[in-house]
């Protein structure tokens, strides 16, 4: 496996990542429906106050909240050169 893969839960705020793989069958369907499917572009936008969990992601036009545990099931690859500007 490519060592550049990271878990979405460990992604850096404001950087774009491409979804590589959904590892948990049980929640893969819902994640797909929410926009996390192979090759979709995602970005960590915010962390919940105090506990830094759940996490809020930008996916397409939507903002999706996932718990850290849910985000851990998603492998992503950083997309070089694309940054998010506020």
């Amino acid at each position: 496996m490519d060592s550049n893969y990271v878990k979405l839960s460990n992604s850096e705020k404001g950087l774009f990542y491409r979804v590589v793989k959904l590892n948990d069958e049980k929640i893969a369907l819902r994640l797909t429906q929410l926009g996390f499917h192979e090759s979709s572009l995602v970005m960590l936008k915010r962390k919940a106050p105090i506990f830094k969990d759940p996490l809020l992601f930008q996916v397409g036009e939507s903002q999706i909240a996932l718990t850290r545990k849910e985000a851990e099931t998603i492998d992503v690859l950083e997309v070089q050169g694309e940054h998010y500007h506020e």
Binding site: K26, I27, L34, S62, I64, A65, T67, E70
Partner: peptide
């Protein structure tokens, strides 16, 4: 499954 997974 008990999940959060939701759109804001």
């Amino acid at each position: 499954p008990s999940y959060l997974m939701m759109e804001l």
